[in-house]
Each structure stands twice: as structure tokens, then as C-alpha cells.
């Protein structure tokens, strides 16, 4: 007999008495196979290894009953959200010889509570959605910045916010500049803040579901020394969480 170790377990499935023995055996073995039991030898289903006949009993399978839930929360889904794709992302074509510049960059952010040790997680190569890999910045519009020290040609950016659930981060904006204070030659590479709630200008890009693939953004060789990543909470909460950031590029070639 296999009994589930779950609350609210109730015997919702016992075999009817008029079932044929063959069906009982079949379902019994199927369930044992499925539910982690060991298979007897294929050529002797009714005997022990010593050859002693074994009495078979119908399997009583206990499955938890459904819980009754009240009205679920009405979560709005904006018209600018990309549908979640079940297909693998097509590859992006970039020049050969690019490297991930993030591990060598100086990381800063708008949240004073986030120290250098914490921010180092953003580019440490750990992308699993475990709590110890996630950097949480306070609520509201927050940014993290990578300073490469000298101009680079940037071709692709990948951002992993927290993706433990199917959630959408709001006001995801990626900007580049030629100085750490973001005063010179500021350009926007990605902006899905269509309502301009971040105050950095309305963007035309779409919101998206977080996933283990991360968000891949084609930055088309933009030349810059610094890159900033903005966000303003998610559908899951007000915090701004990051798991990893990768920036693919190379040292700026002479114009």
C-alpha cells in the first residue's frame, strides 16, 4: 500500500470490486512503477526471488482532494507584455571574438545599502535562481551601473532579474554613457517604460517574462564606457532583484 504524506489526504481512488484481476494487477504494477516502488523480475511477477508465490492485493492509492480557493487576485497584464514563448530563443549574430566585460567592470548602484560584496554577485557567473545569488535593491526606481574604465564596443547584453517565478519587471531601461556620472553622450538602448513612469522618457520596447534564458538585448555595437540598468519593481513585489548581468563587447576600435 502506498500512502501519500500529505495533508487533507483522502481515499478518492480505490479500485471497484468488480474489476478483473488482470486490471488490478496491471494498475497495481503501473502505480508501483510510477510511485517509486521496485519492479519485480519481469519473468516472475507473482513470485519472490526464491520462487514462493506472493499474494497480491489491490493498490489503495490515496490522493489529496482539491482545496477550495476564494476569488483569485486579478493580476493585470499590460498590452505591451511579450507572450511567454515555449520555443528556444534564436541565436543572435555578433562579431567574433567578443568577451563578457561584466566581470572586470566596477559595479555601483543607486541603493546605498548594497555594498561591493553584494554587487559582486551581479557578475560572478552564478545564474541559478538561488537566494544567495540574488542581489536585492530597495523599492522604487533603482539602477546598477557597470564602469568598464575605458570605451568599449557593446554588442549584446543579457539581464537576469530574479526568475524564480513567472514575473515581469517594470520599467526595464538600459542606458549607456561616456562617463561614470552619466552626463556625457547618454543613450538609451532598451526601454520598456511605455508610460514614462521612470521619468527617463517613454520607451517602445515590450515588457517580458523573466526566465532562465535572461533578457537578451542587441546593443548593436554601441560605444560607451558605462552602462546602467534601471528597473522599478515587478509584478511580484516592489524590490528590484538581479541574479546576473552579462555584457558582451570588445575594446573600442579606432573610428
Amino acid at each position: 500500500m502506498i500512502v501519500r504524506n500529505c495533508e487533507n489526504a483522502s481515499p478518492v481512488a480505490s479500485l471497484p470490486s468488480d474489476q478483473s484481476l488482470r486490471f488490478r494487477l496491471g494498475l497495481g504494477f503501473l502505480a508501483v512503477m510510477l510511485l517509486g516502488g521496485r519492479l519485480p523480475a519481469a519473468d516472475s511477477p507473482n513470485t519472490t526471488p526464491a520462487g514462493t508465490p506472493v499474494a497480491l492485493t489491490p493498490l489503495i492509492l490515496k490522493l489529496p482532494s482539491p482545496a477550495e480557493k476564494g476569488t483569485p487576485k486579478d493580476i493585470p497584464l499590460g498590452s505591451n507584455v511579450e507572450p511567454l514563448s515555449t520555443n528556444a530563443r534564436p541565436p543572435m549574430l555578433v562579431p567574433a571574438g567578443l568577451t563578457n566585460l561584466a566581470p572586470g567592470a566596477t559595479v555601483t548602484c543607486s541603493d546605498r545599502n548594497a555594498g561591493p560584496d553584494m554587487l559582486a554577485k551581479l557578475a560572478d557567473g552564478e545564474k541559478e535562481p538561488a537566494d544567495q545569488n540574488i542581489v536585492s535593491l530597495r523599492k522604487g526606481l533603482q539602477w546598477v551601473q557597470l564602469d568598464f574604465g575605458s570605451p568599449k564596443d557593446l554588442f549584446a547584453v543579457v539581464i537576469w532579474h530574479a526568475y524564480k517565478a513567472d514575473l515581469i519587471y517594470h520599467d526595464v531601461i538600459v542606458r549607456v554613457a561616456d562617463d561614470p556620472d552619466f552626463m556625457q553622450n547618454v543613450r538609451t538602448l532598451f526601454n520598456n517604460d511605455q508610460a514614462n513612469t521612470a521619468g527617463l522618457g517613454a520607451g517602445a520596447d515590450r515588457e517580458y517574462f523573466e526566465s532562465n534564458e535572461g533578457k537578451l538585448i542587441n546593443t548593436k555595437g554601441a560605444r560607451a564606457r558605462c552602462i546602467r540598468f534601471y528597473s522599478k519593481g515587478s509584478t511580484d513585489g516592489a524590490l528590484n532583484e538581479y541574479t546576473e548581468i552579462e555584457v558582451y563587447g570588445r575594446a573600442a576600435l579606432s573610428p
Partner: peptide, 28 residues
């Protein structure tokens, strides 16, 4: 949090359905 409604209605014809609020460790 057992957030699967209204699947119990749609799967009512299946008599061996178990409803969990977390992935069982084994026994699939």
C-alpha cells in the same frame, strides 16, 4: 497555495487526480 482553480471542475471526469501545493519529493 493550491492556486489551480478551476482545474478541479475541468478534470472532474478523472477519478485519480491528486492535488498538491508543492512538488512531491518522489512518486510522480
Amino acid at each position: 497555495e493550491s492556486d489551480y482553480g478551476p482545474l478541479p471542475w475541468y478534470l472532474r471526469r478523472f477519478k485519480q487526480v491528486g492535488w498538491w501545493d508543492r512538488v512531491p519529493e518522489s512518486s510522480f
